[in-house]
Simulated assay, not measured.
Amino acid sequence: MTDATFAATPPGATSRRLREFARNFGPVVTVIAALIGLWYLACIPMNAQNSLLLAEREGIAVSPATAAERRDVGGIALAFATPDQALARAFDQDRPRLPTPHQVVTELWDTIVGQKITSKRSLVWHAGITLAPTLLGFLIGSIAGIALAVGIVHSRVMDLSVMPWAIASQTIPILAIAPMIIVVLNSIGIQGVLPKAIISAYLSFFPVTVGMVKGLRAASPSDLDLMRTWNASGLRTLLSLRLPMSLPYLFASLKIAVAAALVGAIVGELPTGAVSGLGARLLAGSYYGQTVQIWSALFGAAIVAALLVAVIAAVERFTLRRMGLA
């Protein structure tokens, strides 16, 4: 660097940037570090029984224990592992009850970066399979939610009749209704992406409906009176006043809806015995006791949801900026 570069740098600028970075990201890094530390600590008692089994197989004597301190595993009374035995084997088991963070990260790296995207072992490929019904269900649910919200705001009858039913629909567990939807649609020959998309739409329409109802009613009484003095029709009021006012509420609800749609698509894969998709990875890991695969699929789903929410947030910033609302 030249003397001019040093002269252009204000004194204390580096330390000021470091303080700003610590102020902005320090709490996040601290919370993440604390969670990782607690995760590692939880692996020790969760994997203690497997640690003891490994120690017995290797011919290592276990500490004596009373009958009350023993557990019957496979017809053999085994004692709890001693702290050193539990600690030595808690973090490197092939099929742990609770995998460690580095095992999950390694599995994510191997299945995302270490595999071709077209490989059936690639988590990216499975995420793409799940993404199709997610986006279709999100689109269906969003359109249905917006349409219901417009009807609820403009019709007293729909407000008193449809809204309670929309709320009641969310009390039905999705794990109970998903197999019913799959079976009914399969009986009439509808298979593939659409049944899972309908389950996604079922979960995603409600937050859009509630958010849009709140947004469409966000216009102040004075603004509505002004539209009446201009003799504006209901459609003109909707397009010129209510919809622009509802956009911040709409985008907030869309972020929730897209995550719910992803959950619906994953749940929709479970009753079908799917062999591809994030739900299939969860099923396969559960069948074969591959807990590391289960956790990597869960984190993969979380990454996909975060990316979808980030895309909607980017569209929100662009749209609101163009409309002068941000």
Rank of each mutant, 00 (worst) to 15 (best):
Pro27Ile: 00
Ser233Pro: 00
Leu282Gly: 02
Leu325Glu: 07
Gly189Arg: 10
Ala147Asn: 00
Ser204Gln: 07
Pro244Gly: 12
Thr229Pro: 00
Leu203Ile: 10
Leu35Lys: 00
Asn47Gln: 08
Leu18Met: 02
Ala218Arg: 10
Ala144Val: 15
Thr66Gly: 11
Arg97Tyr: 15
Leu18Trp: 05
Arg228Ser: 13
Arg228Glu: 14
Gly300His: 02
Phe91Ile: 08
Ser253Trp: 10
Ala219Val: 14
Trp165Met: 15
Asn186Thr: 10
Ser15Gly: 03
Val258Asp: 04
Arg228Thr: 07
Ala326Arg: 04
Ala48Arg: 14
Lys255Gln: 06
Ala178Cys: 01
Ile143Trp: 02
Pro164Ile: 04
Val157Gln: 03
Thr106Gly: 12
Asn24Ser: 11
Phe138Cys: 05
Ala79Pro: 07
Leu38Ile: 10
Gly189Glu: 06
Val309Gly: 02
Leu160Val: 15
Phe80Ile: 15
Glu20Tyr: 04
Ser51Pro: 07
Val304Gly: 03
Tyr287Trp: 09
Ser200Gln: 02
Leu235Val: 02
Thr134Asp: 03
Glu58Tyr: 10
Gly285Ala: 11
Thr14Met: 00
Leu262Lys: 01
Met227Ala: 15
Leu247Glu: 09
Glu107Leu: 11
Gly114Asn: 09
Tyr249Trp: 10
Ser142Pro: 01
Ala219Arg: 10
Ala168Trp: 14
Val213Pro: 09
Arg217Ile: 06
Thr100Gly: 02
Ile182Leu: 01
Asp223Met: 15
Thr2Asn: 12
Ala326Phe: 04
Ile152Thr: 11
Asn231Asp: 07
Lys120His: 15
Met212Thr: 08
Ser276Gly: 15
Asp225Trp: 10
Val62Met: 15
Ala67Asp: 10
Ser220Asn: 14
Leu54Met: 12
Gly277Pro: 04
Ile60Thr: 05
Ala88Phe: 11
Ile188Trp: 12
Gln93Phe: 09
Ile152Phe: 06
Ala68Glu: 09
Arg156Phe: 13
Val183Met: 08
Gln103Met: 12
Ser51Cys: 09
Met158Ile: 13
Val183Ala: 08
Pro64Gln: 12
Lys116Val: 06
Ala176Ile: 12
Val315Gly: 00
Ser233Gln: 04
Leu282Met: 10
Arg321Met: 09
Ile256Leu: 13
Ala313Asn: 01
Ala7Phe: 05
Val104Gly: 02
Ile60Phe: 14
Thr229Leu: 14
